[in-house]
Design a protein around this nucleic acid. Structure first.
Lengths: 333, 333
DNA sequence: GTGAAAGCGCTAACAT
DNA sequence: ATGTTAGCGCTTTCAC
């Protein structure tokens, strides 16, 4: 690969002049500029990103941690982030944290070591103290998605889990349901807790007893929805609707209900959360709460880029509104 | 951030000695080694990746191009690649090429500029000649997934599109279908052509007339499957099975058939391709051809890492076997 | 065994 | 307007 030195020799000028032409700043005579550009073209010269990064302390790389790129939900988010990066001429390194504190901190350290100019983090656990300390000490710009338990984010994009869950329950109540089961994700997850709180609020505001919603905790997996629904069915508990913690759980619920010959929504109504990839492919189409995943990923990067430019963010905490997507899995009683 | 110089001062040794300790090579007395390690721990020193990369000409970054990270299919592949990277202590930069020659070449150039040690490419178009030229001139290790039209790959991992399509048609034939419609992807795609060839072969081997399978070309989108199925239904054409070019198209097919009150598989059987995320969530469960996406992504990176270590690859062309996944969308006539 | 010194490719402060 | 020079943080000869 040709270096700046090669170009300067070829053009008969100094390295600095070449650098000035490349950067497009400083005084260069039109004449030499043409000479330099010709040499660049001839040699197929491309500036060495590494050397540039070392010298300028700017890598033009944005680091991104999500829970798991392989999952459609986060893949969409990453897709949005990537689009924004491309628009801003940045590259992106993506890591998965697998909702595990150790993995998450490792991922963040990898990104810091890679000299990322800034980070977009979707993590489920508090960032370990040493890592948070490093972020603070080098004053690394971070945009947090979901929540910021450590105060390291320049801005937080919050998903309205509270409002989403509240809206879901209200929708079920509006449709006459008074015996609802909520198959929740693990309490360790921030999102889970916010949703539970939304549920409680909806119930309270409707002036109904707390027992209106029966909560069972599990994992955000189809398997949990499937097994717990079978349990519920054999337990003899009376209920008319299941509000699943997410669409994966809902898929399991639907599977189990069908298997037992329970009609959806005729006998039991089902709601999900996320409007994940498969929600509309389920039969019946799943009524659920949509999160605009791609837009969130994109917005996070845009905010980061803005910080990187030295701009002040107009808002330091943004809550993304959710949207109730009505399909065919909820019946009116 | 502490530099190697800080550490050397702190430990009262030279930079070289510190470097030797970090690299774990060269002679260092036990005594000084302890001193250096203490200083590293005390200062929280972490080697500067950029400086290292500049000096050693090794970035430890692997570049990865797929069609679109946001799509569940490629997200899975990326997930596999990422796992392999982590295991090999590499970082990964991911780009989407959107099956567009210009975007794809841009993505590859970005990765080259980022000084990636090697590339894993899933591209749909020939790599543009200048980019291919650069790859050759710097002898950059590349593993191709899908196919290698430019001879730039050290190895190619091929998906058995031919065998998959052949198996699908054979399965339909075995179930007595003799009037089959194939809703194909665009002819511009390599995968499409291989699948068509598999179809032809299956028909020929069964000694049936070519017209047994009626091919309609479109896009790999649900919309195409939906609209074309409606067309087919109103056209009066006689057929008992639709073999969709992929699971997205199949989803559209199922939607349209249901909408028109056509029973699946009672009236019309449906097959897909990929065993994509939603295939098993469809109703009826979609009988389809599985591609082990995650394993492919992982394998590609493992091969690349192996090349990077200077090892010789045992095989330079690997065809991943496909697998027929039988669910409930095909009936026996 | 260890340190001094050169240099990877680039940018920017400083001369001219 | 242009060139000279000094590093960015690290690895790696090459002396001692």
């Amino acid at each position: 690969m040709a270096t700046i030195k090669d170009v300067s020799k070829h053009a008969g000028v100094s390295k600095s002049t070449v650098s000035r032409v490349i950067m497009g700043q400083g005084y260069v005579s039109e004449q030499k500029k043409i000479l330099v550009e010709a040499a660049i073209a001839k040699l197929g010269y491309r500036p060495n990103t590494i050397a540039r990064a070392l010298r300028s302390n700017r890598s033009n790389i944005i680091g991104n941690v999500v829970v798991d790129v392989a999952s459609p939900f986060y893949a969409q988010m990453v897709g949005g982030s990537q689009a924004a990066c491309r628009a801003a001429n940045k590259s992106m390194i993506i890591c998965s944290g697998f909702a595990d504190q150790y993995d998450e901190s490792n991922a963040i350290m990898e990104l810091i070591d890679r000299a990322c100019d800034g980070l977009v983090l979707y993590v489920e656990n508090p960032v370990s103290e040493d890592v948070a300390g490093i972020i603070r000490s080098i004053d690394l710009p971070v945009i947090m998605i979901g929540g910021d338990q450590d105060g390291i984010g320049r801005a937080v994009i919050k998903i309205d889990n509270f409002g989403g869950a509240k809206a879901a329950i209200q929708y079920l109540l509006d449709n006459g349901h008074r015996d609802i089961v909520h198959l929740s994700g693990p309490l360790a997850f921030r999102d889970t807790r916010a949703r539970l709180s939304g549920i409680d609020t909806a119930i309270a505001e409707a002036g109904l007893p707390k027992g209106t919603v029966h909560v069972v905790h599990g994992e955000f997996f189809e398997q949990f929805g499937y097994e717990e629904t079978l349990n519920l069915l054999t337990s003899g508990r009376k209920f008319t609707a299941i509000f699943a913690g997410d669409d994966d759980i809902a898929a399991g619920v639907i599977l189990a209900l069908k298997e037992r010959g329970v009609r959806i929504p005729g006998d039991i109504s089902v709601m999900g959360f996320d409007d994940n990839f498969h929600a509309r492919h389920l039969t019946p189409g799943l009524t659920t709460i949509r999160q605009p995943t791609m837009a969130i990923g994109q917005m996070a990067v845009e905010m980061l880029v803005s910080v990187l430019k030295g701009e002040t963010l107009p808002e330091t905490e943004i809550t993304i509104p959710i949207e109730l997507v009505v399909r065919d899995s909820v019946a009116t009683i």
